[in-house]
Amino acid sequence: MKIEVVNLKKHFGHTHAVDDVSFAFSSGQVVGFVGPNGAGKTTTMRILATLDEPTDGDALLDGVSVVEEPERARHLIGYMPDALPTHRDMSVHDYLDFFARAYGIKGAKREQVIASVEEFTNLTPLREKMLNTLSKGMKQRLSLARALLHDPPVLIMDEPAAGLDPRARVELRELLRVLAAQGKAILISSHILTELAEICHGAVIIEQGRILTAGAIQDLLTNHIPRRAVMIRSLGEQEDLRRDLLELPRVEAVRLVGDEVAVDLDGPEEAACELLAALIARGHPIVEFRQQRANLEEVFMSITTGAVQ
């Protein structure tokens, strides 16, 4: 299964909520959709879920257009909106039974499917509980269970971890890992970027309806950090090391942090190699030299401006 978002545009009057967004990914991959509030994430996801029509462009699920063939596309998509189930006077099992019927799953197969998703999302003990008595984490699991009822190859999840406590977040993360391992293509938006970095293979960063950058998480962490931080521990004098470091090109700042020296470098990864070579050439007894990795949050902050339309 290949998911292709092609030159997607969505205009609301003069506001370009989504402006020429294109990216593609495949089965078994989890892609984070990251951006500030109002960046166009939910609009893009709603178009992918066939709930909105783009002004221009398209999204193809193995060649099935969400614009031209929404009925076919709906069979391929499981959508988890950011709002939680709120039906009154309804139990967990009845809720799933209703949606299974709405997806046209009939007879004994329906019972099997419901039992299977209840077990997968750990809802079996809660199946007779009424929806209004569920916690947010339980409701998120129920929402995921509903999205999985028709076994879609593509999952679109809008802020699934919002408002969850750490345990519920860990549980959700584990479920997503299993689903990705099962071969589902998952597009997930979240503000909890550290979590996204742990479960996503790639990320698309969007702001004001436009893609700022997209790629594998490792590439983003490597290529989109404003400065490179290196931690050095030497058996020699820290002051000598500090003085020498300040004389070297590309070194922007040097700080003493405990028994280590923190160096801010300007430049690509090669700059760190050159720095290490220069220090050894000057005879410093280096016992530890490590590059501090940026996290997705730093990448996000460095790329986005926080501007809204």
């Binding site: 978002v5 294109s22 990216f23 990914f25 031209e68 790639g202 790629g215 594998a216 590439d219």
Partner: peptide, 18 residues
């Protein structure tokens, strides 16, 4: 009547390892 769209081109595929 609607004209079938041409095959998409110029999409950046995310190079991801599963």
């Amino acid at each position: 009547p609607f004209r079938e769209s041409e095959p998409p081109s110029g999409i950046v595929e995310l190079r991801l390892s599963e």
